[in-house]
């Protein structure tokens, strides 16, 4: 009897497990699911059929069928292909898009749940969006050192917006569209190389001239400052001399006591001072003390 109980218990457990497998399903944290009853999707009051992660009940096939989809953000990228700017300049662009399923039922209806089909459709949509958006912008708005004129962020936002309009009906939400590569056709890049070389040559001349100009300016500034310093020093020296002359005025008053003697002494000093070094003198014979030399001759003649 005891043995029968054990067998029965095992049997019941197996039946329960089998029953659970038939009557329940599990949706993983990374998935979203939909359930159909006799092929028709089961929707809630809001019209959504998405079943979030967790443990759920179902009727066994063929009453209920469950379809699960990966609801994680997916990243897709496509080929590096040529398009044209608004002024007709060719440009090569490669974009990537991040997207996720935001309506499992629409996604199921659009692609039968096939991610590859969804990727193909996205490629078509993003490519169309990319071409139409790029054709509205100039080359200078795609590459520019002036960030005010650069519109890359705006271009990406436009591409996302345009693509999102098309993908909304597919149950896909585009999170972002970004540029992954930018380039030019081969024939244009050879011209770019030549331009880069000639630009450098021009910049070399410009740099040399700028260096010369700056060096000259520095020297001129320095000369100016040096002259100013010297001028200030000269002025200071003059001021000091003036002050000394003013201070010596009280001594000049002494000379007024006998101006004749004063003039005589000044003249004498001036004469001695001017003939102090390496002078050549042409003297009249009557100049004292040389008149002593002529005196005896005169006396003889007399």
């Amino acid at each position: 009897m005891k043995k029968n109980h054990i067998t029965l218990t095992i049997g019941v457990i197996l039946v329960i497990i089998f029953g659970f497998m038939l009557l329940t399903f599990q949706v993983r944290h990374t998935e979203v699911a939909i359930r159909t009853t006799f092929g028709k999707a089961v929707v809630d009051n809001e019209g959504k059929a998405d079943i979030e992660s967790g443990f759920h009940f179902r009727w066994p096939w063929p009453v209920n069928e469950v379809y699960k989809f990966d609801k994680r953000i997916q990243s897709s990228e496509w080929t590096f292909e040529q398009t044209a700017t608004t002024e007709g300049k060719p440009i090569l662009i490669k974009v990537f898009a991040t997207w996720r399923i935001n309506n499992a039922l629409k996604f199921f209806k659009s692609f039968s749940g096939d991610l590859n089909s969804a990727d193909e459709k996205l490629k078509e949509v993003v490519r169309s969006s990319q071409n139409s958006v790029i054709s509205n912008y100039t080359f200078d708005q795609i590459v520019n050192t002036n960030t005010d004129l650069l519109k890359l962020d705006e271009i990406e936002e436009e591409m996302k917006k345009n693509a999102s309009l098309d993908t909304a009906n597919f149950g896909i939400e585009i999170k972002m569209v970004g540029i992954k590569r930018l380039g030019l056709p081969a024939s244009v890049t050879s011209q770019v190389f030549e331009r880069m070389k000639s630009e450098r040559q021009a910049r070399i001349k410009e740099t040399e001239a700028a260096g010369e100009r700056e060096a000259k300016m520095l020297r001129a500034d320095a000369d100016l400052k040096a002259n100013e310093i010297l001028a200030r020093a000269e002025a200071q020296a003059k001021v000091l001399r003036g002050e000394a002359e003013a201070a010596s005025a009280k001594f000049f008053k002494e000379f007024e006591k006998n101006p004749e003697l004063a003039n005589f002494l000044f003249n004498l000093n001036a004469m001695e001072g001017s003939l102090k070094e390496n002078s050549t003198l042409i003297l009249d014979p009557n100049t004292p003390p040389f008149n002593l030399l002529t005196q005896p001759q005169q006396n003889k003649n007399n």
Binding site: F264, L265, L268, M271, E272, L275, K276, E277, N278, S279, T280, L281, I282, L283, D284, P285, T287, P288, P289, F290, L293, T294, Q297
Partner: peptide, 25 residues
């Protein structure tokens, strides 16, 4: 006084002079 000072001064000047041209008849 004047004569003495002129003579003394001339002595110093002539000592320092490089060339002295003296014209005497």
């Amino acid at each position: 006084f004047r004569h003495r000072l002129v003579t003394e001064t001339m002595q110093r000047v002539l000592t320092n002079a490089v060339d002295v041209f003296y014209l005497s008849g």
